[in-house]
Structures are given as structure tokens and as C-alpha cells.
Measured scan of single mutants.
Amino acid sequence: NLRWTSEAKTKLKNIPFFARSQAKARIEQLARQAEQDIVTPELVEQARLEFG
């Protein structure tokens, strides 16, 4: 299971509600691909840039 830093959680809250669950799934996918067990603000930002 993935842990989220408080900064990453804050960044996730800045994503519009309607896109948040999809973004969260993508962020967690990116973390797993990078073999990380902690979601960082950088991963959230990477996903945000993908979504535009």
C-alpha cells in the first residue's frame, strides 16, 4: 500500500474534484512504476502535467 506525504495530499486537493479520483489512480500508478512506496509532490505534479 502506498503512503502519501502531507505535501502530496495537499497538491491532490488542488486538483478539481471531478478529476481527482482519476488523477489519484494515475499518481499511484506512476509511483508503482517508479517502484516507490511513498507518493511525493513531484509525482502529483507529474500527473497534473499529463492531465493538462
Rank of each mutant, 00 (worst) to 15 (best):
F51G: 06
T5D: 05
L49H: 09
G52A: 14
T5H: 04
V39C: 01
Q36M: 14
V44H: 00
R32Y: 07
E50P: 05
E35V: 06
A25F: 08
I38L: 11
I27N: 00
A23Q: 04
E50I: 11
Q36H: 08
Q29L: 09
K24Q: 07
I38D: 03
R32D: 03
K9T: 11
L43P: 00
V44R: 00
Q29W: 09
K13D: 13
A8N: 00
K24W: 04
Q46W: 07
I38G: 02
A25M: 10
A19F: 14
A47I: 14
S21C: 14
A19C: 15
E35Q: 14
P41H: 06
T10Y: 09
T40L: 04
E50S: 08
Q22M: 11
L30D: 01
E35D: 12
E35W: 08
Q22K: 13
L43F: 09
A25V: 10
S6T: 12
K11V: 10
S6K: 14
Q29D: 08
Q46C: 07
A47Q: 03
V39D: 00
I15Y: 10
T40I: 03
Q29N: 07
E35F: 14
Q33C: 10
N1R: 13
L2Y: 03
T10V: 12
N1A: 12
F17T: 15
Q46S: 07
N1W: 08
E28T: 04
I27D: 00
L30I: 08
R48S: 10
E28C: 03
R32M: 09
F51A: 06
A34S: 12
Q33D: 13
R3Q: 12
E45V: 06
Q22D: 08
E28Y: 02
S21D: 12
T10I: 14
F17L: 15
A19Y: 14
S6Y: 10
L43S: 02
R48M: 15
A25E: 10
A19S: 11
F18H: 13
Q29S: 08
K9C: 15
A34H: 11
Q46A: 11
Q22P: 03
V39G: 00
F17A: 15
F18V: 06
D37L: 12
D37M: 11
E45K: 05
A8R: 00
Q46R: 09
S6A: 14
T40K: 03
E45D: 13
A23C: 09
S21W: 09
R26Q: 06
L49Y: 09
E45C: 07
G52W: 13
F51H: 07
V39I: 12
D37C: 09
V39T: 00
P41V: 15
R48W: 15
A8D: 01
G52S: 14
V44N: 00
E7H: 04
V39R: 00
D37T: 13
A47V: 15
L30V: 04
A31V: 04
L49E: 09
Q36Y: 10
L49N: 08
A25W: 07
A19L: 14
I15T: 02
V44E: 00
I27K: 00
E7K: 09
D37P: 09
F51V: 07
R20H: 05
A47P: 01
E7S: 08
Q36K: 11
Q33M: 13
I38W: 12
T5N: 05
T5M: 07
E45H: 05
G52T: 14
V39W: 00
A25S: 09
A8M: 01
R20W: 04
N1I: 11
K24A: 08
R26G: 02
A8L: 01
E45N: 06
R20C: 09
F18R: 07
A19V: 13
L12M: 08
F51L: 13
A25R: 12
Q36V: 14
Q29M: 11
R32H: 07
E35I: 05
A25C: 10
T5V: 03
R32P: 01
A8F: 00
E28N: 03
N14Q: 11
L30F: 08
T10N: 12
K24E: 06
L49D: 06
L2R: 02
N1D: 13
Q33S: 08
A34F: 13
K13V: 06
Q33A: 11
T10C: 14
E42M: 06
I15L: 08
A8W: 00
R32V: 08
R26D: 04
A19H: 13
F18M: 07
E28I: 08
L43W: 04
E42W: 05
A31Q: 01
K11L: 15
P16I: 04
A47G: 06
N14V: 06
P16Q: 03
I15V: 05
K9A: 10
Q22C: 14
R48A: 13
A23H: 07
W4T: 00
A23Y: 09
K24T: 06
V39E: 00
A25I: 12
A34T: 11
D37Q: 11
I15P: 06
A8T: 01
F18P: 15
Q46E: 07
E28V: 05
P41W: 09
Q36R: 11
E45F: 04
E35R: 14
Q29E: 12
Q46N: 05
D37V: 11
S6C: 10
A31D: 00
W4C: 01
A25P: 02
S21Y: 08
Q29G: 06
V39Q: 00
D37R: 10
R48N: 07
P16V: 03
T40H: 03
Q33T: 07
A31Y: 01
K13G: 13
S6L: 11
R26E: 05
K13H: 13
N1E: 14
G52K: 12
E50N: 06
K11S: 11
W4G: 00
S6N: 12
L12Q: 01
N1L: 10
F51N: 05
R32I: 11
I27M: 02
A47R: 02
K9N: 07
E50Y: 07
K13W: 09
P41T: 09
E35H: 14
E35T: 06
N1K: 13
A31C: 09
E7Q: 08
E7A: 12
R48D: 04
N1T: 11
K9W: 14
R48I: 15
A8P: 00
E35K: 14
N1M: 10
L2P: 06
K13I: 06
E7Y: 03
Q33P: 00
A34P: 01
L12Y: 06
S6H: 13
R20M: 05
N14S: 11
E50A: 07
L43A: 02
Q33G: 06
R48Q: 12
P41Y: 05
R3E: 09
F18Q: 07
Q46H: 07
K11T: 07
A8E: 00
A31M: 03
A19W: 15
I38H: 06
I38Y: 09
K9I: 14
K13L: 14
R32F: 06
R20F: 04
N14F: 08
R26K: 06
L2V: 08
I38C: 08
L49R: 13
W4F: 01
L49V: 10
Q36F: 09
D37F: 13
K9Q: 10
Q36N: 06
W4V: 00
F18N: 07
K11Y: 09
E7N: 05
E28D: 03
E50R: 07
I15F: 15
T10W: 09
R48V: 14
F18Y: 14
A31E: 01
S21L: 13
Q29I: 08
T5L: 06
F17R: 15
Q22L: 13
S21R: 12
L30C: 04
Q36T: 14
W4N: 01
P16A: 04
R26N: 04
